[in-house]
Design a protein around this nucleic acid. Structure first.
Lengths: 191, 191
DNA sequence: GCATCCATGTAATCTGTTACATGATTCC
DNA sequence: GGAATCATGTAACAGATTACATGGATGC
């Protein structure tokens, strides 16, 4: 078979971004980094690959747009098939299962084999990272306050904000506990 | 080049699981599903692939173990090189960046194009899923309470629990808001 | 008799990242 | 003059999933 029976989430997301108004691949990529990147990252090259596949399969059509001051571009818009596919995705219940990989937790799981110093350093590093992220999201949430066109964009940012706050609370709790009575010794590779 | 310059997180996690005591590939896989699966899932076939690669590269050695009642197995243990690699990973600061893909948020981002019913259905579905997960983690956290050998396993579960609680709060907030004054109309693919 | 556990793997495919490659224009 | 933005892609690889394949032992 040439075409996929059902579109994956990445394809549907691209259709979704394209559905607001016809834009170029470059614009899809930059729009993605300004919106969905935190919960569904798509790389630049993936966008272009996705677009040509979607066009081959008839979900979108591209039009060559000549520009004087900027390089020419190709602007994509949904076909009827594309619109139907997007609707089908939104109407269907269920969603792709979350695929989460936390490099931090993977390492922290083995923190019992670290020295107390390393452990605290790791936690501090993580706390700082999440806090930066938290502030970023806070700014977005505030910026989108009351914007009727961005209700759901704001909602997803709020989701990120609330979970980031929970993560910081956890980190503070951990740092507090480990500072007072650090448990676990050091695993020795060669004694 | 044949061997990798630096081991990835998945490799280090396998080394970490193996470091406690020598076990079989089957055991690594089942141990993984009972511990790290929520933040660093590794599939069964990936485990076997990883083990043979780690053995080829000299990080682990496998011993054939004959069994009467069960199929024979191969039990792996860390070599000096493997121990050193694990230590190096734990000592180095930093960690692999989180790669998160939330199928739910990817869809919810476009909830403005759903009908109010679909929107609430999606939220209810998600809330129920997270709640099940929350209870699961709560049980783990309680079970590992006071267990000195599982301090960090419990900590990662607590991390999951706190974030799950935050997500539920968010979902309740959303459901509450949308029930009263549902914003956003229906995108029409064909009218 | 059937499901589950133990035990190991291969093959095909998909998904996604990173680096490479090019080149004009605009802003400082 | 140099960096950033606009614009599009290819190629190589890494990482991971799914289905397929096999088979004995144990428990219900």
């Amino acid at each position: 078979m040439t075409a996929r029976a059902q579109l994956g989430t990445t394809s549907c997301v691209v259709l979704g971004l394209l559905s607001k108004r016809p834009i170029s691949g470059y614009d899809v990529a930059s729009l993605a980094t300004r919106s969905i990147v935190h919960f569904w990252p798509i790389s630049k090259s993936q966008v272009y690959a996705e677009l040509s596949r979607l066009e081959t399969d008839g979900y979108i059509v591209g039009t060559h747009v000549e520009q004087d001051n900027r390089p020419d571009k190709r602007r994509y818009e949904l076909t009827t098939k594309g619109n139907e596919a997007l609707d089908a995705w939104l109407e269907a219940d269920g969603y792709a299962p979350d695929r989460t990989r936390s490099g931090f937790l993977a390492k922290f799981f083995f923190a019992g084999d670290m020295t107390p110093d390393q452990r605290l350093l790791l936690l501090d590093e993580y706390r700082a990272e999440i806090d930066t992220y938290r502030l970023e999201l806070q700014a977005i949430v505030e910026k989108l306050e009351g914007r009727a066109d961005a209700v759901y964009g704001r909602s997803t940012a709020l989701y990120g904000l609330l979970t980031a706050e929970a993560k910081i609370k956890w980190a503070d709790q951990m740092i507090e506990t480990l500072s007072h009575h650090p448990p676990g010794g050091r695993r020795r590779s060669s004694s």
